[in-house]
Design a protein around this nucleic acid. Structure first.
Lengths: 101, 101
DNA sequence: TAACGTTATATCGTATAACGTAATAATAAA
DNA sequence: TTTATTATTACGTTATACGATATAACGTTA
């Protein structure tokens, strides 16, 4: 397996993508690639999506065609907010300790 | 498995701990617990430590007693800085999309 | 318009590394 | 002598990486 040397936590990136607006899987993938230059393979992407759905953080919206758009649930929004705050605490302490602030 | 609802990326937290000063495993654990209220089990902690050592991001310092203090290598410092910057990008976009900025 | 290639969209399977949990051990301290 | 400190090891579970497959839709060109 190839070790990825950059940060990548697919589920977090997916939630952030859906925080902007409702999107189907493929559109989420494009959004993430465009914003962070991180390319999620289909297995990684849809695997993370289905776990997030199972946990109730995102849910499917009905649609006519074969696209399956998702939206962030209220629970997902709360969860994401917590995650990001925690992460900001971590990075803030990190920067201090690195002497970059 | 118990799903942890908080962010936890042991290796990142360990690197940040060592960015402040050299520490042995147990002291790293205490530092992390004190700062983020995240308690790493020994398997998680020492597993992550040995991976970080193998990748050259941290290294052991000689010591007389049974403690094994580690220090952040130059490579580890660069790596950590990158990670944190990437994470800050992610959280910053996340906050914007959540409407929290 | 028919044929063809390409992009869009999703599912599934497998391998492995990270993580969680716990058992064990040994020394130091209270 | 009981508790805290410090580390190692093993095992099970899960997330992720990677890739194969499938089909629909679209665009281009013969």
């Amino acid at each position: 397996m190839v070790k990825k040397n950059r940060f990548s936590e697919p589920s977090l990136l997916i939630l952030i993508s859906l925080a902007e607006k409702n999107r189907h899987g493929y559109a989420i993938m494009e959004d993430i690639e465009k914003n962070y230059d991180i390319k999620l393979g289909p297995g990684t992407l849809y695997g993370a999506i289905s776990r997030l759905e199972k946990e109730g953080y995102i849910s499917v919206i009905e649609s006519e065609d074969r696209k399956k758009p998702y939206k962030l649930t209220d629970e997902g929004q709360i969860y994401l907010t917590d995650q990001i705050k925690e992460l900001q605490k971590v990075t803030s302490i990190g920067l201090k300790r690195l002497g970059l602030v």
